[in-house]
Amino acid sequence: MLAPGYSALEFVPPAAGSYGLPPMGLAADGRILTDQNKRSTLHDVMGDRITVLSFIFTTCTDVNGCPLAAYVLSGVQRALLDRPEMRDRVRFISFSFDPENDSPKVLKEYGGKFRDPNFHWDFVTAATDIDLATTLDAYGQSVLRDYDGEGNYMGSMSHILRVFLIDEQKKIRNIYSTSFLHTDTIVNDVRTLLMD
């Protein structure tokens, strides 16, 4: 069974602006490597836009994991593209926690499958193990590598899918996981932030 994000919502969501999204603290900064192979920081990339930050790795095969995030965010991108008043105030950052495999070149190729040229969607990773650990810890994103019976890394990882909605002041305003992540929900929440 696929996650709810792959189909229409089973309920009528609350209208944008009719509810609050209380701040959940400052979104952490972190040193990153962009898909242009440039060193930067999360805060620099976020800039002054509303940011949807997801943690992914490009070889993820769990249909209800990273592919779900890509599917849902692609939907949000489509919904915002024709609304410049929203499009120009939002960006996505997809952060790979597998820098060993997800080099800037790989990320650029992967991102190209999803990113519309008219939308700000950055695919980034960490340049060092310490930077990666610091960022994952700051966002409470636990990741487990999968090993076989002999202790050999199987090339896959287990993680709880987390997607963060971050406002223009870099405060976390919502966190989505598999059963909660949906295009309509994120679009509504973005509109709610824009109505703050």
């Binding site: 926690f97 597998d98 820098p99 060993e100 960490a126 193990d129 310490i130 990666l132 650990a133 610091t134 994952l136 810890d137 636990s142 990741v143 487990l144 590598r145 999968d146 090993y147 202790g151 990882m157 287990s158």
Partner: peptide, 21 residues
């Protein structure tokens, strides 16, 4: 849940985050 195995601890496969590798 945490990528760990029970004793013997020295031989278990304590799965680390990618960061710890």
């Amino acid at each position: 849940l945490y990528g760990q195995a029970p004793t013997p601890r020295a031989e278990n496969t304590i799965l680390k985050t990618a960061a710890a590798e």
